[in-house]
Nucleic acid binder design. Structure first.
Lengths: 162, 162
DNA sequence: TCCATTAGTTAGCACTGCTAACTAATTATA
DNA sequence: TATAATTAGTTAGCAGTGCTAACTAATGGA
């Protein structure tokens, strides 16, 4: 779904330089379909996607304040407040008040949280690796290159916005 | 976040044949970050993501029964029942009972629904095209190739499951 | 000192996912 | 044919995730 190629094409121009628009559309569709597979593994963690994502930020990015977490996850403070409360309730993260500024809280992943995240991560990636099993080395190279490009591009866009 | 490369690497092996695992991980991360941008455009539609996605299926896939919709969206029937009710309430889709089997309903996108979807689609893709604006023609080629590969791979995985 | 700003929380709404339990229609079977 | 099993959808109720508005508490500047 959601692909220009699904619509009647009255432009029989051959594939010369792909337009940004076409590339954007195909990437969009591909990303949706890819993540749909990965996401299904997450139910096994028993933790919702927002909590899992915030936890991953804590595990890989280290302890941080609620506001930082919210900004990184592109979510408003009240939403992150609830997510952190959930993580705390499940024993996956702990919070302590900042020594130098009593308004701030410092959120940290617990050992249990790190363990759970690694397992969830492994399941997701393993699932994707599984569906890549029929791919040639060359295809894997193309995909890796594309993934790196995308990360660069997205990072550039985010930096430009800051 | 969520990338092996963020973790301490004690394996200094150069980039020879990328492992499926590594490719899966990088793709996973890239897809998440890419869609995070596109998704933010959707608030402008005034329709939630699940409804938008179901509507796109109706627009591009034609009218179908509720069960088909649920299966295609990988969602349970009660969830799709509510999504369709919402689309109907907003005048974006209409339902009629199947003539040959009175248990079934036939869900169809309205003209208004098609219009709204095209606008939402355009916004999403335009946003992605925008962040691609700094890319060379060669990069666009790599990205397009990767998108096509992913669609093939995901399709194969889905077909295999059937 | 007093006021504006900043960090987080609480309350309340909407949307999306689930399971369990239901109705109604269809199909299979005794 | 009558009844039982299956199938299609709906309803009710729960949890999670997003928002805005309104609040409290702490900080920092005039």
């Amino acid at each position: 779904m959601l692909s220009w190629s699904d619509m009647p094409r009255h432009d029989p121009r051959p594939t010369k330089p792909p337009s940004r628009f076409e590339v954007a559309d195909r990437l969009h569709s591909a990303a949706i379909h890819l993540l749909r597979h990965a996401r299904k593994q997450d139910v096994l963690a028993g933790v919702g996607p927002a909590r899992l994502s915030a936890l991953s930020l804590l595990v890989f990015g280290g302890p941080m304040a609620l506001g930082q977490l919210a900004a990184a996850e592109q979510v408003k403070a009240p939403t992150m407040s609830r997510i952190v409360a959930g993580l705390q309730r499940s024993g996956l993260a702990k919070i302590e008040t900042d020594a130098s500024d009593a308004r701030r809280i410092r959120v940290t992943a617990t050992a249990k949280g790190e363990r759970l995240l690694q397992q969830a991560r492994t399941r997701r990636v393993q699932k994707l690796a599984e569906i890549l099993s029929g791919s040639t080395g060359q295809d894997l190279g193309t995909l890796l290159g594309a993934a790196e490009l995308i990360e660069q591009i997205v990072k550039r866009a985010a930096d430009g916005k800051r």
